[in-house]
Design a protein around this nucleic acid. Structure first.
Lengths: 218, 218, 218, 218
DNA sequence: CATGAATGAGTGTTCATTCAT
DNA sequence: TATGAATGAACACTCATTCAT
């Protein structure tokens, strides 16, 4: 995480400036000049480090993406139970996007809709990270924690969709103030939707069998 | 719904062309020239009907949005039960986006991230339409069908997020082929997450009483 | 030669302006802005007629080249004798380049050294026109007018080289004032180099006989 | 001729690299970066030895030009007869350009058309060297070897034009393979054009003057 | 002596938009 | 109503050149 060289520091400085500017104005509306000004450098210097405005945009996820993936994998490895993993994951994502709002803007509002971005290494890593969700769900089904009748893809869309929807809503409307307040509500609701019903509550049925074979239930 | 005048037909023709072109290339990458060509008109003619490229973009949702809203409201008015309303709504949205892919591209990939679009009449109508979801959920809670402990906003994000996630995924990756296959899976999972647990299901317990008075439950 | 349409006139106007500016400053040193100013148009208008600065440059020879070729072919068809044809041709080229100094600059100092220009239709036509020289020489040899021992390529280089050298010298140093003064000197010298020695000349001898019977020859 | 210092060697190394790069890509299309890479140095180092890209270009003819001049002068001093001198000179030039193709490209395709180059010391030396041609011709006329009616400038253009035309043709089209094959053909043709005709053949005219003043020629 | 790093100055090109006809 | 023609306003990108180390 420590920046190795002078040159790396410059790259990073430019990426941070670009992130800020792109988040504020969008990609097309941001100019290299804006970014250079934000970074306290000249336009030409930007091009010493990035071949084009688009390359600069695509470089922003950079190592952050990989670090995130590893951090999340490391963490979840220590959590027992699919439900708990899901809660951790939801917590982590909401926390992550909330604490990196500029990056969130770039990722959610700019990169996600860019058709060229999908050919990127960063995109691949993001997709891999997202794949943890169906993996957890699959594990939960295998362990009997989740209901086998649910569709993994649907459940994944529900989790990811809800997270992204909340993040985008906050970016665009500034509400809610703190996404983390909703981790448990979201997790609980999701879990109730996908958990095995009988694992969730004990139903005690009292059956009284009479001498004549008739019975009553209470 | 019938197009009133010659002029209205022209407007519509241009909007359809723009929808197609924007869907194919994005907003910034589409030129007025492209749209004019697609419409079989000259560039200047576009400006006889729309003041700017952006106004043209923002006009695309146009009446469709209002029609949709009314159609959906009309339909749901005849559906009994919050759960059933939700199923109808999910069905309707998935069907709608799937059958209007160009419009879906414009709405999901272009308009949704545009900060100026939020000041638009069309945006207001869309938001109003979306508000049917929390309304249904609120009604479901009031009627005892849904669990009062759930958070309406969270549940709304879940429903809307899942729908949009599935639509966008299909737009960008072409899968799944038919979103409608997933209406029931999605609805069921969502409903299980928000329904009152004990009101929700019929439990059938088969008790077999043996001759010796012992019994087994299945 | 008559300009057909409004649009053709504009193209031509731009080409004339470009010719002038390129001749004055060279290709790289000329800006589209310079050309637009010279033409009394805006920069953008240039691009309505030519896709790029380079395309504009390459378009300059345009029809002029073809007209020249046809004009020269037409003329030479009426000239009898290879030597006379060569004289006409030399006259024509010196006259042509001298009366189109801007075009001469563009052709001799810019286009001739451009490696992309050789892939051009205009280049092909120019080459074809130049091919008249070896053709005439070949004919002259066949008819017995020229010496069969000369090398056609060498003689062609001599003729063309001399013409171009004189034209370029005049362009760069402003001398001589009138290239046409040298048509006969050049032609005569060239012809003496390639004609069959004994077939070649009429000798006029002026003999003055004095009263005393003595005479002088001049 | 031996390189005096370390610094001189560096200069030379850079000039050779520049020559190569300029020959390959032309002046404007070559970058200092290209040259530095070719020389195995950094961009900045180029500027330790040359004040600007243009100065570097103009420096290329450098001593070579002077050496050539002296070499040619020394050689021709030992050749007897204007015709023989001309043959030697033609041989020398064709050989020189052919054996220095990169320099030929730079000189013929870049420097020759550069209006600033004419203010250069190197240009002066080249012109002085070229002046050997009219000098030889003048000597030939004075000695009675060449025809006094020829125009020195025209003959010079013919010689120089032919040489340069052949060299450029070879540079641009790769033909002919060996220019030296044409030394004699070119020289012979040129010489026949400028040599005294009567030195080539004697014409005897018998004029009989009659008593009445009439005459007959035989 | 060599260079990594930075930049000023410049320019070709695009395109939404206007307007006379 | 429709459009051909024109352009103002931008902007990404290049590269020769400088200078502290």
């Amino acid at each position: 995480m420590a920046v190795s060289s002078k040159s790396e520091a410059r790259r990073d400085q430019i990426q941070r400036a670009a992130e800020k500017v792109f988040a504020r104005s969008g990609f097309q509306e941001s100019t290299i000049s804006d970014i250079a000004k934000e970074a306290g450098l000249s336009d030409a210097t930007i091009y010493e480090y990035f071949a084009s405005k688009e390359e600069l945009l695509f470089s922003i996820p950079g190592e952050l993406t990989l670090e995130e993936k590893e951090f999340l994998e490391f963490h979840l490895a220590h959590v027992r139970g699919a439900g708990n993993k899901l809660r951790s994951l939801i917590y982590h994502y909401l926390w992550f996007w909330q604490s990196h709002p500029d990056y969130a803007s770039v990722a959610m509002l700019i990169l996600k809709q860019n058709r060229k971005f999908v050919d990127t290494e960063a995109y691949r890593i993001i997709q891999e990270t997202y794949r943890m969700i169906p993996d957890i769900i699959r594990d939960g089904i295998a362990s009997g924690e989740f209901d086998p009748s649910i569709r993994i893809g649907v459940a994944t869309s529900m989790v990811l969709g809800a997270i992204e929807h909340m993040v985008v809503h906050r970016l665009l409307h500034g509400k809610p103030d703190d996404l983390l307040d909703y981790v448990d509500y979201l997790t609980d609701t999701v879990l109730r939707g996908i958990q095995k019903q009988d694992s969730a509550k004990d139903v005690t049925v009292h059956v009284t069998v009479n001498a004549d074979g008739s019975h009553s239930v209470k």
